[in-house]
Structure formats: structure tokens, C-alpha cells
Simulated scan of single mutants.
Amino acid sequence: MDGTTIICSKEDETRRMLTRLDDLMSWCKMVFKPKKSRSLSIRRGKVDKATTFTVAEQQIPTVNQEPVKSLGRWYDSSMKDSRRKAETLELASESLLAINKCGLQGKFKIWCLQFMLLFPNFYGHS
């Protein structure tokens, strides 16, 4: 199993779902890796840093403790895009400078721009 997302509206529902999934995984002779998972609890529109969940008798780290990258985007407890905007601009600037300095002819630089910077997942890269 590559990835599973659980979205519940209540804390006890989430705990019950995690217990059921853990039982199912045990039945399948598989185990969760809580250290590779993240939890995010939102109460009244704000990140609740106190709520934690466990699976396989191990605590799942919160997004506050360890940010997570999903579909090429980083998520942290701030839940704001302002930092991501600055990171994206910096990465784009550095990448464009690297492409410009690479010594390739113009048409190959365009290829690098298109397939390595703008659409990196075209060839399965992330």
C-alpha cells in the first residue's frame, strides 16, 4: 500500500478508524510504519498541536513535529502558503540560473526548462 489518507470530523472516529486499519493490517500480516506517517488535527479552524494519534502502539508524528511532502508540496503546521511561495521563487531562480550556466545550446536549455523544471513528473521524477 503506497498511501492512505483518513479524514474524519471527530477525534474518536479517527482513533476508531486507525484501530480498525491496524487490525486489518495485522490480519494481512503487514505493519504500519508510523514514523513515515503524519497526523493533522484542526479544531475551530486552527491546528491543534496537542492531539496525537497512535497506530501499532506507536505515536504518529504530527505535521507540527515533522512536515510532510505530498504530491510535490510540503505541508507544515502553519497551513500558510507564504513560505512555500518564497521557497518556490528561490528554487525557480536557482534552477533557471543552473540551466543558463550549463553550457548547452538554446534548444537544449528549453528542453531542460520544459521537462526538468516545469514538468518534472513527465518522466516520473519528483
Rank of each mutant, 00 (worst) to 15 (best):
G3Q: 11
T5S: 12
I6K: 02
I7W: 07
I7V: 14
K10V: 04
K10F: 09
K10P: 01
D12N: 12
E13T: 02
E13N: 06
T14W: 01
R16G: 09
L18P: 00
L18N: 00
L18G: 00
T19S: 07
L21N: 04
D22R: 02
D22N: 13
D23E: 13
D23K: 14
M25A: 13
W27L: 15
C28I: 03
K29F: 10
M30V: 04
M30H: 03
K33Y: 10
P34Q: 05
K35S: 15
K35E: 15
K36I: 07
K36Y: 06
K36L: 14
S37F: 12
L40H: 08
R43S: 15
R43T: 14
R43I: 08
R43P: 00
R44M: 08
R44W: 12
G45Y: 07
G45T: 03
V47N: 09
D48H: 03
K49A: 13
A50E: 13
T51S: 07
T51E: 03
V55G: 01
V55N: 01
V55F: 01
A56Q: 07
A56K: 06
A56H: 06
E57F: 13
E57R: 10
Q58I: 05
P61H: 05
P61E: 04
P61I: 03
N64Q: 13
Q65F: 05
Q65R: 12
Q65V: 07
V68D: 04
V68C: 04
K69E: 12
L71A: 08
L71V: 10
G72D: 08
R73T: 15
W74S: 11
Y75P: 00
D76H: 01
S77T: 05
S78T: 15
S78Y: 08
M79D: 06
K80T: 15
D81C: 11
S82R: 12
S82N: 12
R84T: 07
K85Q: 10
A86S: 11
T88V: 06
T88K: 08
L89R: 14
L89F: 09
E90V: 14
L91I: 12
A92H: 09
S93N: 12
S93C: 11
S93E: 10
E94F: 15
S95R: 02
S95M: 08
S95W: 01
A98D: 12
A98E: 12
I99A: 01
N100I: 02
K101T: 10
C102V: 05
K107H: 13
K109F: 00
K109G: 00
I110M: 12
W111N: 02
L113K: 00
L113M: 05
Q114D: 08
L117C: 00
L117S: 00
L117I: 00
F119L: 13
P120L: 06
P120R: 04
Y123D: 07
G124M: 03
G124Q: 04
G124H: 02
H125D: 14
